[in-house]
């Protein structure tokens, strides 16, 4: 799957299905199981029918309106911690800072993960920590 045609074309994978949705919606719109199913049906059909390596199939989907195209790389600014981002990032850089500590969706997630991942516990589901 891809929502970034130019990036996928540069990588040039054997098979790809293009979804012209804003980033973060590669497999559909939220709370739309019918649309999500239709999207994957189309993608799998493209997969079945593909015969030429390097083809990107446009699934022909449209988001509904094109307002998102004006700022297509807007990151997670509304959910990221603001104070640290403000300290660490140049004023002109609206992107989210690259924090090097785990970024939990909620404090409850953090507490549960820290509880389960004491130093003596080797978790086999969280693989390949690099620090």
């Amino acid at each position: 799957m891809t929502s970034a045609w130019s990036i996928t074309a540069a990588v040039n994978p054997p098979r790809a299905a293009f979804v012209d949705y804003p980033l973060g919606h590669t497999t559909g719109q939220p709370h739309d199981p019918t649309g999500q199913r239709a999207l994957l049906e189309a993608a799998f059909t493209a997969f079945e029918e593909a015969t030429v390596a390097g083809t990107i199939v446009d699934l022909g989907l449209h988001w509904g309106d094109d307002a998102w195209r004006a700022d297509p790389m807007r990151g997670d600014s509304r959910t990221a911690p603001k104070s640290k981002a403000d300290r660490g990032a140049p004023r002109s850089d609206s992107r989210t800072e690259r924090f090097d500590t785990p970024q939990y969706q909620s404090d409850e997630d953090r507490e549960l993960a820290e509880l389960r991942h004491g130093e003596e516990i080797a978790c086999r589901a969280c693989v390949g920590f690099d620090d």
Partner: peptide, 20 residues
Amino acid sequence: FAYDTRDARSDINVVFPIDT
């Protein structure tokens, strides 16, 4: 950090289509 996660947090199937 690179996309707006609000919809994914509301319905994970938009980036991880497990129910689909």
